[in-house]
């Protein structure tokens, strides 16, 4: 076992942590080293997807990555967004502008307890942002949402509002083409 330095970009800010154990899970790094607790431990085993963050790839695409089964050092040099990085905050830390997905989830009462909400926000955001690069066909829309959100567990809501809200955002942003 060894400790090593970790450098990454976290919610747009460069972050350097000198001592990070080589086998530390990213989720523990976010929680215990960065005090970012919005990425949630649900199963700790890569099943429920409550812990996912967004990684922005050099080619302009983005993807969700499960932090409970992925080591912190996997993210070396990568650009990472967590749930805490979506909304614009005022100086006091209050949200003043939500992302389109966050806004719609709120308006549609998409979540109840909200423990899984960060994972759903990240997954839906990845879908929306990738659709901004390559719009979805109407006939593929529901399938694309199922593919993006389908692995995420929610125990409170029955999923309906998350799915409908995501569909609405894609439509509202003009990311769904006929066909």
């Amino acid at each position: 076992m060894a400790d090593r330095k970790l450098q990454l970009t976290l919610n747009g800010q460069p972050v350097v942590t000198e001592v990070v154990p080589d086998d530390l899970a990213m989720l523990d790094y976010l929680h215990e080293y960065q005090n970012l607790t919005g990425s949630r431990l649900g199963c700790g085993q890569g099943i429920c997807h409550a812990c996912v963050v967004i990684v922005d790839n050099p080619d302009g695409t983005c993807e969700e990555v499960r932090t409970c089964i992925t080591g912190a050092h996997y993210f070396e040099g990568k650009k990472v967004r967590t749930i805490e990085g979506h909304a614009q905050l005022d100086d006091a830390g209050n949200p003043v502008a939500l992302s389109p997905i966050q806004q719609k989830f709120v308006e549609r009462f998409a979540f109840q307890c909200s423990y899984c909400a960060p994972g759903f926000v990240n997954a839906a955001t990845v879908l929306v942002e990738n659709a901004q690069r390559k719009p979805l066909k109407k006939s593929e829309l529901e399938g694309a949402i199922e593919a993006s959100l389908g692995h995420h567990v929610c125990r409170c809501t029955g999923y309906v509002r998350y799915y409908e809200a995501t569909r609405d955002v894609l439509g509202d942003l003009g990311l769904v083409k006929e066909g």
Partner: peptide, 15 residues
């Protein structure tokens, strides 16, 4: 390679 293993495998297959 051990660090790669720790990064993407160890979460399930153990360190």
């Amino acid at each position: 390679g051990r660090q790669q293993y720790l990064n993407v495998c160890a979460g399930c297959h153990g360190a």
